[in-house]
Design a protein around this nucleic acid. Structure first.
Ligand SMILES: [Zn+2]
Ligand SMILES: [Zn+2]
Ligand SMILES: [Zn+2]
Ligand SMILES: [Zn+2]
Lengths: 152, 152
DNA sequence: AGTCGATATGATATAATATTACATTATGGG
DNA sequence: CCCATAATGTAATATTATATCATATCGACT
């Protein structure tokens, strides 16, 4: 991990601590540790991948350990779950709830988060047209990312 | 089950058999049975819920039995998987691949499938703007359906 | 009919993902 | 200190999904 990346992670952890404090929640060492694993991964990690990594330094970690931390981070809007992968990534706009769309590259595995207003609006209108009140929308677009796409 | 609903199911099964035949695939008794369970459910069913129902008449059914049937039905575009629920529903436009959006009511559990062109386009453009080539898009909107919504 | 390959199903085991339940330990306000 | 709350520890179990190998079915071909 580069010095630059480490600085970024530290900044994100600090930001997260602020966000939690504002909500009257605490980013404990355990939660911070799990969050840092997600931040440093660069690709989505499943709960058990996180558990394996956590175990390296946190003997006695068990499934509830990781699922509780994940629930907390989700509640604080610090991470997102990618349903199709049963995996977790950091939120690029950490700390506040927002509509998002995820681009999942099936070649390199990278997932990037975008917030496209036109798409969000179109989905909301589509739902309203049916008399449906949206509360929480999941958009997961699988395909090939720009980096992986090469014209033949 | 009403006579009307039974006729509808029969028509859908016949339609499905045609669709499969055109693809050189066969809707065997087993697959047809699983599909009929999904058609008659009225709400999404998980693989193990289907397995339990299948076992009533098909002694010896096991997880692979149901997962194979589901894989087949997905390949033939006869059903959809709702990722957030790990559950399956019939496709309203059975037999051909198409972009869709799912409206999941968190009160009554009903999932309805819509195909909104504006939303599909907006998502495609959002992806392309990032240089991303979409292959398969999942849109699952959780909220309250028209039937469940009552003004206070 | 006999052989063959391809497809479908049977059967057992196991992997991967997630939750329940209850005990124990910090933490902070009174 | 005492208590309530939040957080974590620990064991067991539930749910979802796949791997593997055996058996059956079926049509094409000889
Ligand atoms: Zn986000
Ligand atoms: Zn890629
Ligand atoms: Zn459909
Ligand atoms: Zn409803």
């Amino acid at each position: 991990m580069s010095a630059k990346a480490r600085r970024r992670t530290t900044a994100q952890l600090d930001r997260a601590a602020q966000v939690c404090a504002q909500q009257g929640a605490q980013l404990t060492d355990l939660r911070r540790h799990v969050f840092s694993l997600i931040l440093e991964a660069g690709a989505p990690l499943t709960a058990y991948q996180l558990l394996d990594r956590l175990k390296l330094t946190h003997k006695g970690a068990a499934p509830p350990t990781i699922y509780r931390a994940l629930d907390f981070l989700l509640e604080q809007h610090l991470i997102h779950k990618i349903e199709r992968l049963n995996a977790f990534i950091p939120c690029v706009e950490a700390g506040h709830r927002h509509p998002a769309q995820f681009l999942i590259c099936c070649q390199c595995g990278v997932v990037s988060e975008i917030e496209n207003r036109a798409a969000t609006n179109a989905l909301e209108h589509a739902a309203e047209k049916e008399g449906f009140r949206p509360r929480n929308t999941v958009v997961e677009i699988e395909g090939v990312c720009a980096a992986c796409f090469r014209p033949s």
